[in-house]
């Protein structure tokens, strides 16, 4: 059993990973080839405490830091055969594993804000279909429909909507153009939008 293996082995104490990279590389290769526990202990004892210190700084929470260490070192144990010394140092490989696990932890932690659904993000362009095969709608139909419905608005409301939404004028400019009070422009806009909304609903 490995109970007797000291946590910090003598020679991995003060070296920077550049200096011990070759040594750690060969341990990793041994773990990958033969599940060598002694080699893994060398790797573990060097990397785990340093990873914890870093994670604690980053995450500010002992439990999360230890979770990161545990998951990262488990991955090192399980995936050591994927380590390729020619592609980089053990410190790069292990840091990258830890980095990816940290991203996954952040994903899980994050409280889902409000659920954003695609339909809100891609408003109106979307003709909802459950299945590709059901698609038969003319691709222009929504905009065309809107155009037709728009024509049904009372003239005074349509003028205001046209000026604001199509010509891009401000409500004040529209008030000046039609020589009506600003409040009237606002109420016509509101009424028109309400009306469009109802007509669109009926159209469904």
């Amino acid at each position: 059993m490995l109970v007797g293996i000291p946590l910090e082995s003598k020679h991995s104490h003060a070296v920077v990973p550049k200096d011990c990279a070759d040594e750690m590389s060969s341990y990793l290769v041994l773990v990958g080839q033969s599940r060598c526990k002694r080699s893994f202990a060398e790797i573990f004892n060097y990397f785990a405490p340093r990873l914890r210190s870093y994670a604690l700084k980053q995450m500010g929470n002992e439990a999360l830091a230890m979770e990161l260490v545990q998951d990262t070192m488990s991955n090192v144990w399980q995936k050591s055969h994927l380590f390729n010394a020619e592609k980089g140092a053990p410190s790069t490989w292990i840091f990258t594993i830890a980095r990816n696990i940290r991203f996954d932890m952040l994903r899980k932690q994050r409280n889902r804000k409000e659920d954003i659904c695609a339909d809100d993000l891609w408003p109106v362009l979307c003709e909802q279909t459950a299945d590709v095969n059901e698609v038969s709608l003319d691709e222009q139909i929504t905009l065309q429909q809107l155009g037709i419905i728009f024509e049904d608005l009372p003239k005074k409301q349509r003028e205001v909507i046209e000026a604001i939404y199509i010509e891009g004028k401000s409500q004040q400019e529209v008030a000046d153009q039609f020589e009506i009070p600003l409040g009237t422009v606002k109420s016509r806009t509101r009424l028109a939008l309400q009306r469009l909304k109802e007509m669109l609903k009926d159209n469904d």
């Binding site: 339909d119 408003p123 728009f150 909507i161």
Partner: peptide
Amino acid sequence: PLHFTSGLARLLNPFSQLFF
């Protein structure tokens, strides 16, 4: 949500919630 800026598509903005 995207915010449409031109032509009739601008009319769609106030209704983004409605269609779905």
